[in-house]
Design a protein around this nucleic acid. Structure first.
Length: 285
DNA sequence: TATATCTCCTGCGGGC
DNA sequence: TGCCCGCAGGAGATAT
């Protein structure tokens, strides 16, 4: 599932293969993939055809391309299974290729998305806190790899929340880029159970947790991201290998790498949480 | 206003 | 072999 490191790998691929080139045409094959573009696929296609891509940017799990038209940004969210592939035009079309953009090089930028949770949309850019962002991304907090990330401010925001700390980590308006996998990994590293109330954790504990978030994401980025199957790949269709380094996520009943206790899986927010019963004791409520 | 839950979607694997 | 069901989960909508 693409979280911040995976999206950053894709952004770098777009910077290498798409920035500087002109979008000659766009074909939308599945309307759900442009459902967040209220004027529809034809409008999206008409508005970016002929524009030159100037940059590939990211905040959290949101990705966007800017063009030589300063009023337009193409916002891309990969959802759970989205891929941005750069392919030769004569390569066989992927089964779930829902949007195809042809570049002036003759190559195609394809949006492939099995579960259709992701999509493309055009948005104007606005100035937020000194940074130019697409409107649809304006409410998203800075992520832990952002040079202007402010841990003190995030800890203050977390201590104002009477919610489970894992829920707060997943709240993209508090800190962005964290999904289920890296939330579990950071909590394991910090020895904190995800159901502890954020407001009741000490400032040092929360600073330590954010430091672990930054560490695990940096390591995952270095490894090219986490892949469990073919659903996450870079623009060349290659998988990352950080899955081998995971200590908690997906390791139910396997021994904790610290203490040997079997990793437990629990239901949380209609999804799975993995933790060590000994290193991360459940809070008493 | 803050917090919690539901919904969207498809492919895979397990059970029968 | 084929059918059914549960599971995976990001983010916006809806409910409490």
């Amino acid at each position: 599932m693409p979280e911040l490191p995976e999206v950053e790998v894709v952004r770098r691929g777009l910077a290498d293969h798409v920035v500087g080139h002109i979008v000659e045409s766009v074909t939308v094959k599945h309307p759900r993939s442009v459902r967040r573009h209220v004027l529809g696929g034809d409008d999206l296609s008409a508005r970016i055809s002929g524009l030159r891509v100037e940059s590939a940017q990211r905040r959290g799990k949101f990705l966007w391309l800017t063009f030589d038209d300063p009023d337009t940004a193409l916002v891309v969210h990969l959802g759970m299974s989205g891929q941005m592939l750069v392919q030769p035009a004569d390569a066989p079309l992927e089964k779930h290729a829902h949007i195809v953009a042809t570049l002036d090089t003759g190559a195609q930028l394809r949006f492939v998305d099995q579960r259709t949770f992701g999509g493309w949309a055009l948005h104007p850019l606005v100035e937020v806190d000194g940074t130019s962002l697409p409107v649809a991304v304006a409410h998203i907090a800075r992520d832990p790899l952002d040079p202007l990330f402010d841990p003190d401010a995030v800890v203050r925001a977390m201590r104002a929340k009477q919610s489970d700390v894992k829920r707060v980590l997943l709240d993209q308006t508090v800190v962005s880029g964290i999904g289920n996998i890296y939330a579990d990994e950071a909590l394991w590293r910090a020895r904190i159970h995800g159901e502890r109330i954020a407001a009741r954790l000490t400032r040092p504990a929360l600073h330590g947790l954010l430091a672990e978030v930054q560490a695990v994401m940096s390591e995952a980025l270095h490894a090219g991201g986490t892949s469990f199957d073919a659903l996450y790949v870079n623009v060349n269709g290659q998988s990352g290998y950080f899955e081998r380094s995971l200590a908690a996520y997906g390791r139910e009943d396997e021994p904790c790498r610290r203490c040997g206790a079997p990793i437990r899986r629990e239901k949380f927010m209609n999804r799975s949480s993995y933790s060590c019963p000994r290193c991360q004791p459940r809070p008493r409520r």
